[in-house]
């Protein structure tokens, strides 16, 4: 066991895959010599050299075009889009080209690439560098969508994403980069599309993703000590494929579901989870499904404002307390 930060786990995961497979190439802005703007890719340039770890111009369309072209011929590119907000700059390549090629070619073309990106708020970067946009990807058929909450999952899910034959959108939550966690020695790989029950509970189930997972766990701890409410927490880890079976299993036990997402209110991923559970388990439910989300606003920069916008431990705690009565 080694203790690594979430950001170190990124470089560790990429290195594991680049050592294993010479077809893995890594490209993005400032990822090489500079080690990444979030220092998540430090050391890779020195270890693997400029041919495999390629600093690119600030040209998101060219980066993803290069990655897709390379992937179609059998390379396994990992492309970094520095901030997930910038996916809007190259969304055509993601939504119209990368996602659809396997289907449109009747399976002749696979696009086995990973798009890594720093997602989410909490760093006071303002509305254009703080969004949680994993729901944008969830809406596009043909993409897998992953968002880890721990260093171990960063490494294990990144490895799985690189080895997957489909394009994978890999959302790293930037406020989690300094968080430490244990990573097993030797090869680390997780399965895509499996949620994890991180805390058992009998009164209510909280489904969360990425940075909302540790907050949900902390809220669950307070609910236990302060209100004698037993709240379970599921870390979704993947939006596509979506592990509905794990959600159903937990909700069947508790009959109450609360989703906690960083997406703005309208069409956040929690709405989809809520819809599925309503259709499948309506008669098991003891209360309406409640979504805790960021309001439907651009994220403000000032700390007081950003902190009340993104779901906090307090907000999760209060929402569960009010609903589970």
């Amino acid at each position: 066991m080694a203790e690594l930060t979430y950001r170190e786990a990124v470089a560790d995961g990429i290195a594991q895959e680049m050592e294993r497979d010479p077809n893995v190439v890594f490209l993005g802005e400032d990822i090489g010599k500079a080690g990444g703007v979030f220092k998540a890719t430090v050391g890779l340039y020195d270890q693997f050299g400029p041919d495999r770890v390629r600093d690119t111009p600030i040209s998101e369309q060219a980066i993803l075009g290069a990655a897709m072209g390379a992937a179609m011929t059998g390379l396994k590119p990992i492309a970094e889009i520095m901030f997930s907000d910038f996916l809007a700059v190259c969304w055509d390549i993601v939504a119209n080209q990368i996602a659809k090629s396997r289907y449109m070619t009747d399976g002749q073309v696979n696009v086995p690439l990973v798009i890594r990106t720093a997602n989410g708020g909490g760093a006071r970067f303002g509305a254009q560098h703080s969004q949680s946009v994993e729901n944008w990807s969830m809406m596009i058929p043909g993409l897998k969508v992953v968002a880890p909450s721990t260093p171990r999952d960063v490494k294990g899910l990144l490895a799985a994403a690189v080895r997957d034959p489909d394009p994978v959108m890999f959302f790293e939550q930037k406020s989690l980069y300094p968080v430490k966690g244990e990573i097993p020695d030797g090869e680390c790989i997780e399965e895509l599309g499996k949620a994890k029950v991180v805390r058992e509970g009998s009164d209510v189930t909280i489904v969360a993703l990425a940075a909302m997972v540790p907050r949900a766990v902390e809220a669950a701890e307070r609910l236990k000590t302060e209100a004698k409410i037993s709240a379970g927490v599921i870390d979704l880890r993947s939006l596509v494929p979506l592990d509905t079976q794990t959600i159903f299993k937990e909700v069947e036990k508790t009959s109450r579901l609360i989703t906690v997402e960083e997406n703005p209110r309208l069409c956040g991923w929690g709405a989809e989870v809520s819809s599925i559970v309503s259709e499948e388990l309506f008669w098991n439910l003891d209360m309406p499904i409640i979504r805790v989300t960021t309001p439907h606003i651009p994220l403000p920069s000032a700390d007081e404002l950003e902190d009340i916008a993104i779901p906090s431990v307090e907000k999760i705690f209060q929402t569960v307390l009010r609903s589970v009565d």
């Binding site: 041919d51 075009g65 897709m68 072209g69 179609m72 390379l75 390549i93 119209n96 080209q97 070619t105």
Partner: peptide, 25 residues
């Protein structure tokens, strides 16, 4: 033959990527 692309201009960065793969390999 790598397509056949419906969005005006989108094949240009992808073709550049195919060239990247030629060079890498």
């Amino acid at each position: 033959f790598y397509g056949g692309h419906g969005i005006v201009g989108a094949q240009v960065p992808i073709g550049t990527g195919l060239a990247f793969a030629h060079k890498y390999k």
